[in-house]
């Protein structure tokens, strides 16, 4: 078992023939991911990286039976790409694009909800189920197969956490990068819920950062669920000043309840094993699993 993506996922790439899309689709195919085609409007009928190119997502779904998409479309057109995928009946929409205007995401989020699709991201590294499917831009070799799930707002910090876990002789079931924007499709809580519900996952690493309420919401859900599956948590940005955006558009302290300190306190109260140092994630996972 795993969550969101696996070896049977039929994946298309939107923005397939662009430079980002080409590079990362190539890496995904090399990893062994089941990429069934791609979409670039106007280039339908061509072949790219040995896979068919379609003009629309609807065409791609009709021809290939695709159920999952990964989006590399530039920010000005990315929200439209998300809505096109949802309209075509794609179930899992993973959006890598960074810098989408908030107003566009408000519309796209609402649209995706109304179509019952699951959006992951935007501004995220994607999702990986080691040994089965890499639907993202993460370095595949870091993620060895195992029984630890990861949910994280950050890309490189996810790689860091996975690397630490692997160095402890453990591995990853699925790692979900949910993204660092103010509006994201899959919340920390939803990702945690999926991983806690996955029978193959025996521990979850939950990595958050300053800004917003997602980690607190996830922590409260975890406490209420009564789950005995251990969760190790880290929140980045203890040293970030209030009112400044720290790289991710959503990483900004707005009040007293979205600081790193406040989030860590709530997580601890809800039974999550919070590490103070980002260098201790792997060790803590090992500890709670033994």
């Amino acid at each position: 078992m795993s969550v969101l993506v696996n070896k049977d996922s039929k994946i298309i790439v939107q923005g397939f023939t662009g430079s980002e899309g080409t590079f990362h689709a190539g890496q995904m195919i090399e990893y062994g991911t089941n990429v069934v085609g791609g979409v670039t409007p106007g280039k339908g009928g061509q072949e790219h990286l040995g896979k068919p190119v379609f003009n629309t997502v609807a065409d791609a779904v009709k021809e290939t039976g695709a159920d999952t998409t990964i989006i590399f479309v530039p920010p000005a057109f990315a929200a439209d790409a998300i809505m096109e995928a949802a309209d075509a009946g794609i179930g899992v929409i993973i959006t890598i694009t960074e810098g989408i205007p908030v107003a566009d995401m408000i519309k796209a989020y609402d649209y995706v909800q109304s179509r019952g699709a699951r959006l992951v991201g935007p501004n995220c590294p994607g999702v990986i189920t080691p040994g089965e499917a890499k639907v993202g831009i993460m370095p595949g070799f870091v993620f060895k197969k195992g029984n630890v799930g990861i949910v994280s707002k950050s890309g490189t910090l996810t790689y860091e956490a996975a690397d630490q876990v692997v160095r402890q002789g453990l591995g990853i079931t699925t790692a979900i990068g949910i993204g660092g924007d103010p509006i994201i499709g899959t919340t920390t809580k939803e990702a945690l819920e999926m991983l806690v519900g996955d029978p193959e996952t025996s521990c979850v690493v939950m990595i958050g950062e300053i800004g917003g309420q997602l980690e607190a919401e996830a922590a409260r859900w975890y406490k209420e669920s009564g789950s005995k599956k251990p969760v190790v948590g880290f929140i980045a940005g203890e040293t970030a000043p209030a009112g400044r955006t720290m790289g991710h558009a959503g990483a900004i302290v707005g009040g007293s309840d979205d600081t790193a300190q406040a989030k860590k306190r709530i997580m601890k109260e809800c039974g999550i094993h919070v590490v103070e140092s980002p260098a201790q994630i792997g060790i803590k996972v090992k500890e709670v699993l033994s």
Binding site: S154, T158, G180, T239, A240, H248, P278
Partner: peptide
């Protein structure tokens, strides 16, 4: 000097520690 916003914040925290 770090690659990635989350890792950059985590690095700042580590400096403080």
């Amino acid at each position: 000097m770090v690659n990635g916003a989350g890792l950059a914040m985590a690095t700042m925290d580590l400096i403080k520690m």
